[in-house]
Write a protein that binds this DNA or RNA. Sequence first.
DNA 1: TTTCTTCTAACAATCGTTGTCAATTGGAAA
DNA 2: TTTCCAATTGACAACGATTGTTAGAAGAAA
Lengths: 156, 156
Amino acid sequence: MQSSGQLIEHFRAQGLKVTPQRQCIFEALVSSAGSHPTAEAIWAEVVRHMPAVSLKTVYQTLNDLSTMGVVSHLAIGTGSARFDTNVDRHQHVVCTRCNRVWDVYVDLTEEWIESKLPSQLPEDLGGRFLVSSSDLVVRGLCGACADDSSSVDATV
Amino acid sequence: MQSSGQLIEHFRAQGLKVTPQRQCIFEALVSSAGSHPTAEAIWAEVVRHMPAVSLKTVYQTLNDLSTMGVVSHLAIGTGSARFDTNVDRHQHVVCTRCNRVWDVYVDLTEEWIESKLPSQLPEDLGGRFLVSSSDLVVRGLCGACADDSSSVDATV
DNA sequence: TTTCTTCTAACAATCGTTGTCAATTGGAAA
DNA sequence: TTTCCAATTGACAACGATTGTTAGAAGAAA
């Protein structure tokens, strides 16, 4: 994750304006690094400092950052998209109870995956496929939720 | 994938009624096996035979099947959910140009993944995570689209 | 057939996200 | 510093995908 100052440079370099709203969004992003926030979560944080900022502006800025490759856009199952300030090659672990997300580094290279494909793809592809990205999402129950689950289940 | 008759049995076994609408949805599912249809695609097929069936009924039936574990519900990036009649452990390859989806069998066992996690998960999980499922989505360009891409790009 | 329960279809609502557009504002050039 | 214009903003509504609500229709069991 970059600092807020680096994000400002990125925007300037693209000829985009650095408005107070955007700076506030940058701050919210930097302070939430690692938590994989939704656009709405970022917005909630931004609004604490600038109540007039619209959710649309947050989406727009996050999409701009995503286009620049500075944050990545996660589609983890259903629900809102989440934004990840970690743009290194990595995978995600999602707890299906508390919905928290963690980054993990499983040794899954693009080349390894690509080497597995040709023999399996149907003929109309000529057995060829040019891999550009791959997402591994591991779902399950985190330790904390596993500890809670018996009591939670009992009280429901 | 099961036959239409097997789906009927599943429904009966759950105490659910087997209506003409549902039978028609089963037929559409069976005939589309392998194409990872969206709910709307199924609906389009169903409506050819029974114009009065609503999209809601299709969603409901697909969700019922999904709950029974007879079809699986794919969240492949943005856009509509897709339903997969293949419920064996497998992964997906998606062409980002034509949006087609293929099943592949990459040797990625749950145990292998789980063995990679403990050392990476933060302390508040106690380093524990109980994996229940994992989805690998590989994105890129299929052979057919790679062949087309130059001419397509040229004409746009 | 009767009765009971489930299912259907129309409709509207919901959620997450994006388009429209007039008014505002950043920031480079003068 | 002032000026100017393109970029940005926020209010609002629209959008696509999916689900809730409802009254009426149609299965299934007796």
